[in-house]
């Protein structure tokens, strides 16, 4: 196990470093222009959001519809911090990201308290309600611009930051899932009653799943704020949460690799296909329905597997 793990770690780290060097070089040399670089940053941010949502929706098995709300908290808190202080970016930005993450984590913890008593449909509704409350409160907060929006946020989200943090998020999630805590989280998805009977404190692990997910949503939000440089409560609607959910569902619930791939595709594709934006949500809604139908229909699934096998080949039942 130890040896195997080290080998895997070496491969992972090598991929990460090479990926960084190649993309960095392409940006430096101008092959990737400013527009494409923007897409690249959004890929990193969406990877963070998707992987983190997968922890609650894929591994814990609870549909969370308030991800955009946690993202908003991270975005606003970090922006408030960098706008109020004027330290050097290298100090200020990581602290702002961390603060954004922690603020979202606290919100996630608060939401998880009523959520613990409920399962399935009701839990989904509670997270939806929490997301809407967050957005509604932001609309009424004048220090962050209310409905008019929050402007003048420094442009801190560089490729290096976005890439680094996306990698941290992926590694932390994989590591969590491979630990006893991750196993406990998955056991709740599989059978909550059996998990309790096996000595798993399901409430505790639900909270861990929730706050972990919320933390990285907040971190993603912080990066987003310092990329967009302008925030408005209207960005963080239920539609945004659903968009991230689509990425999770398409990549496969409970698959981190899948999340990374689908977040990338669904970020790049709309940019490549002109005029796609009109049909984007329509296509997304079809993705949700068809993926779910395919999951429970062997013929449809076979068709899907064929189409997706090219990049899902090495996938185990779960990561």
């Amino acid at each position: 196990m130890n040896k195997e793990f080290r080998k895997q770690l070496t491969i992972d780290l090598a991929t990460v470093v090479i990926g960084y060097l190649v993309l960095g070089l392409l940006i430096r040399s101008g092959v990737i222009n400013a527009y494409s670089k923007g897409i690249l940053l959004m890929v990193c941010i969406n990877v963070i959001l998707t992987v983190s949502l997968n922890i609650t929706s894929g591994f814990l098995g609870e549909l969370a519809l308030g991800h955009a709300g946690f993202m908003a908290i991270g975005a606003y808190v970090s922006a408030l911090f960098t706008k109020s202080l004027n330290l050097i970016p290298l100090v200020e930005f990581p602290v702002a990201i961390l603060l954004g993450g922690i603020a979202a984590l606290i919100a996630g913890y608060i939401v998880s308290i009523p959520a613990l008593r409920l399962r399935g449909d009701y839990l989904a509704i509670i997270t939806l309600a929490a997301g809407e409350i967050i957005r509604n409160l932001l609309k009424n907060l004048d220090i962050v611009g209310g409905t008019k929006g929050y402007t003048g946020i420094p442009n801190y989200t560089s490729f290096t930051w976005a890439y680094l943090i996306a990698v941290i998020c992926i590694l932390a999630s994989k590591s969590l899932i491979a630990s006893r805590h991750g196993r406990a989280i998955i056991s709740i998805r599989e059978d909550e009653i059996a998990a309790e009977a096996s000595g798993i404190d399901t409430n505790r692990y639900k909270i861990i799943g929730f706050v972990f997910s919320a933390f990285f949503a907040g971190v993603g939000g912080a990066l987003y704020a310092h990329y967009l440089r302008f925030l408005q409560p209207g960005i963080f609607t239920l539609d945004k949460s659903i968009e991230i959910l689509v990425m999770v569902v398409l990549g496969g619930m409970g698959s981190i690799r899948g999340s990374v791939i689908s977040a990338t595709i669904l970020t790049v594709l709309p940019e490549l296909l002109r005029g796609f934006s009109d049909y984007r949500m329509l296509v997304y809604s079809l993705v949700l329905i068809l993926m779910m139908l395919a999951k429970h229909n062997d013929q449809l699934r076979a068709l899907f597997d064929k189409a997706l096998s090219s990049f899902r080949r090495k996938e185990a039942a779960h990561e």
């Binding site: 098995g61 549909l63 959910l245 619930m253 949700l288 779910m292 139908l293």
Partner: peptide
């Protein structure tokens, strides 16, 4: 349940 909910959102 989660599959059903996701489908309903999709619809």
């Amino acid at each position: 349940r989660i599959s059903l909910l996701i489908t309903a959102i999709g619809v």
